[in-house]
Design a protein around this nucleic acid. Structure first.
Lengths: 138, 138
DNA sequence: GAATAAATGAGTAGAATTATCAATAATGGA
DNA sequence: TCCATTATTGATAATTCTACTCATTTATTC
C-alpha cells in the first residue's frame, strides 16, 4: 500500500541539496535559487523556499535565522543570554552571567578579531510545558 | 560651532526608548509602534524603524536578529558554531566542538525544557581585517 | 502501465523593512 | 529670543523576502 504523507525524491530537491552541500558559505534562498537555475533554468523560486523548509523540517539541513522573520529589540545593550520558546516564540532573558571564557576560546582563531558572542537556548518554556500536560490529561 | 552628524534628542526617540525600557518582553518594531502610538498617535512607522536602528547603532539598545533580515541555510544539520563578520556579513563554521555543558548549565532553570542552544561569535574576519590595514596605509 | 497524491511552476499576495522627500523641529550661536 | 542649519519626521511609495494558490506534472506503489 502507498504510504500517505511521505517525502518524494525529486530532481529539484536533490539539486537544492547538492548545491547546499557543495558550498562552504551559508547561502540565502535566493543564492540557492540562482545556483540551481544554472542547471535547471525553469525551477521556480517557490520550489526553492518550499524545499528548504521541508529539508530543515526533516533535519537534513538547518536554517539559520532568529526564530521569526522579523527582528526583536532589547533595551539592555549589555551582553546577556536568551531563552526562546519553540512553542510560543517568547524570548526571555536568562540570569546566567556572560561567559568571558567563550570569547577567549574563539580568540585562538588566527586572524579573527572577536568582538563578542551571542548564546541562545531554545526549548519549551514553563508556560507552554504546562499547557502540554493539560493536553495529555484530556 | 555646530557639530555635524550628531544625534538629536527628539520626543519620538525618547518615547521609543521609554517603551523599550518599560517592557520585559523583546518586542518587534510593530509592537513598539503600537505602544508609542498610544501616547503619540501621529508617529510614523518609518520613524520607529529609523530610531530602532539608530539606537542600536549607538549601542543604546540591541537588535536581536541574525545579521541580515533573511534566512541562511547550512547543509550541516548538526549543532556547530558560527562566526559572523560585522563588516562583510560572511558566516563561517567554527571547528570548535559543541559545548555539552552549556545545555546542562541552562537545565538548572526550573520548568524550562532546554532542547538545544546556539552560539555565534561576531567580529572581523581575516579578510576584512586585512582590507582595513590597507585603508590605513593609504 | 495505471492510480494516487506529492511536488512543481507560474503567478499572486502579504508582511516586514527601507527609501524618498517636502515639511518640521532640535540645536548652537548671535 | 530669534536665526540658520540640518537632523529628523510623517506620509507614502518601493523593495525584499517569504508564503499561498491552483492547474499541471511527476514520483511512487501496485
Amino acid at each position: 500500500m502507498k504510504p500517505k504523507g511521505f517525502v518524494r525524491r525529486t530532481r529539484q530537491r536533490e539539486a537544492i541539496l547538492a548545491v547546499l552541500k557543495g558550498t562552504k558559505c551559508h547561502p540565502t534562498a535566493d543564492w540557492v535559487y540562482q545556483e540551481v537555475r544554472k542547471e535547471m533554468p525553469h525551477v521556480s523560486l517557490g520550489t526553492i523556499y518550499r524545499n528548504l523548509r521541508t529539508l530543515s523540517e526533516h533535519g537534513e539541513i538547518q536554517e539559520l535565522a532568529f526564530g521569526s522573520a522579523h527582528s526583536r529589540f532589547d533595551a539592555n545593550p549589555d551582553n546577556h543570554y536568551h531563552f526562546i520558546c519553540e512553542e510560543c516564540g517568547t524570548i526571555e532573558d536568562l540570569e546566567m552571567p556572560a561567559l568571558a571564557e567563550l570569547g577567549k576560546e574563539a580568540l585562538k582563531l588566527p586572524g579573527y578579531e572577536v568582538r563578542g558572542h551571542r548564546l541562545e537556548f531554545h526549548g519549551i518554556c514553563p508556560h507552554c510545558s504546562h499547557h502540554r500536560s493539560d493536553d495529555y490529561a484530556n
